[in-house]
Design a protein around this nucleic acid. Structure first.
Lengths: 131, 131
DNA sequence: TTGCTCCTCACGTCACGTGAGGTGGC
DNA sequence: TTGCTCCTCACGTCACGTGAGGTGGC
């Protein structure tokens, strides 16, 4: 067993095979900012991934297929999702109502943005359905 | 009511709206030979369509979405389908077994080609599913 | 006549595919 | 050392989108 496998560090080819796509697609998603850039990787060095990276990519691709959304829209959707997760953590860390209120408001703003995008998308899908 | 409507001659915009696509897409499909070129249309003249053209386009788009196949593959699939329909008509016109045999053999060849493509396609879909 | 839809180039775009040429870890 | 997978350009491709500039039918 390789040391990479021991450290649960998958290589790009492993990830591609695991989610049923190509290495090019994964690099492209990283390039446009849909996947994280792998902080601190030296130029030319190999990319490494964890199992949770695989889960995340799988989820991203599932969303893409289900919604038929562009990668740019998908990106804003995923970013809003991440922002909400961060706010949720912050919320947990602050039991006092005064500090919770602004956190809640920001989270709701993200939700609104997501819902707006999804509503637009649903309308488009309904139009095709009726067509 | 327009004279075109009276003659059941739809214009490209009507067709696009009816099937939920754009005029550009319809022209593109014609360009690559996925839709017929409208025999005898003068250069620069308007394209006209019938309701059966709309049905055909709708079916083509349904197949494309369902199979997730490239337009080139879709084209061969549709062409084989048309060839089989023509052979079916020929079969009906010839009740004698001697003339029917070669017709049947040709039709089966088309079917084989279609099935081969669909099997390849299914394997690809299964791989994604397992991924 | 005014609008609208249509026409044909032709270049742009999105989401990757596909080599070329080279480096790095089992 | 040999293979395999990885890396970065960078150009190609597929399926259209998007003007530009012009013509044609209610």
């Amino acid at each position: 067993m390789s040391s990479a496998a021991v450290r649960d560090e998958l290589r790009i080819g492993d990830v591609a095979r695991a989610v049923g796509t190509t290495t090019r697609t994964i690099r492209y998603y990283e390039e446009i900012g849909l996947l994280p850039h792998g902080e601190g990787r030296e130029r030319g060095a190999h990319r490494f991934y964890t199992r949770s990276d695989v889960e995340r990519l799988r989820e991203v691709m599932r969303l893409k297929d289900a919604l038929g959304v562009s990668l740019e829209e998908l990106k804003t959707l995923v970013e809003a999702e991440d922002a909400r997760a961060a706010l949720r953590a912050e919320w947990q860390a602050h039991p006092d109502a005064d500090r919770r209120r602004p956190i809640l408001e920001e989270a709701l703003a993200h939700l609104d943005a997501q819902l707006a995008l999804l509503r637009t998308r649903r309308k488009a899908l309904e139009l095709r359905e009726l067509g």
